[in-house]
Amino acid sequence: MDTIIKAENLKFEYRNDETDEVTEVLKGVSIDIKRGEFVAVLGHNGSGKSTFAKHLNAILTPTAGRVSVCGIDTADENKLFEIRRRVGMVFQNPDNQMVANIVEDDVAFAPENLGMPREEIRRRVDNALAAVNMSAFSKHAPHMLSGGQKQRIAIAGVLAMEPEIIVLDEPTAMLDPAGRREVISTVRRLNRELKMTAVLITHYMDEAVSADRVIVMDSGRIVMDGVPSQIFPQVERMHSLGLDTPQATELAYLLKKSGFNIDGTVLTVDDCISEISELWRNKVGADD
């Protein structure tokens, strides 16, 4: 698999215009993300996740270091739209990313900006709405939809660019559990079926469990990077970074700490249940 996103010692600082104070938000981030990967990015508030995400489609450009996406350097101003059409970005609040008051007009926004012919816009709008299962709502007004539906429209809005990468910055933070499931299963399907590279920033650990890879950020640096089954069992380390672990992992960790002989790498509730029943059976067996 080839590299689709490459950051080399990426640094970024904000300058406060009044006090001339400089805050360094990203302090040297280096990472390779492979085509087709599903990457979850974790980190407590203010660790620089959103700032990092904004470097992936040249909303921000590095103060030092380099970011390249699909082989294009994001600092190259002539390639700005080449980059943005390849990297779809979805934000937290679905209300604040919609421009039009009819669903299909909103989805058409990006291809219209790209100056595509009418038939091509039509095709892309229809495909994008079908990909998020919202075709039936094409003529609706966005403010009449549920949170999860709105966020799926926002996803369709970036899919209409036919991007190779989709970056989602806490897309489920404002949704109810049903809405969260809708959005996450949509993203997962895009990743599996359309082979789209996905970068998902989230505060929900259970959303990160199903990723191919988990990256943990802390004060502007990547401090952990690996598959979920490597990252989450390090419960104490995660806690010290201000993060939770999935409830199943947490429970297994606590049981283990209390002296039970349980596999500490369980991530899902189902795995946890089978581990505990196994433990129970062994214990009952030993008592007999």
Binding site: F81, R85, M89, F91, F109, G157
Partner: peptide, 11 residues
């Protein structure tokens, strides 16, 4: 936020 989202969609 809307302005950023619009930029992200090649506006």
């Amino acid at each position: 936020e809307l302005a950023t989202a619009m930029e992200c969609r090649c506006y």
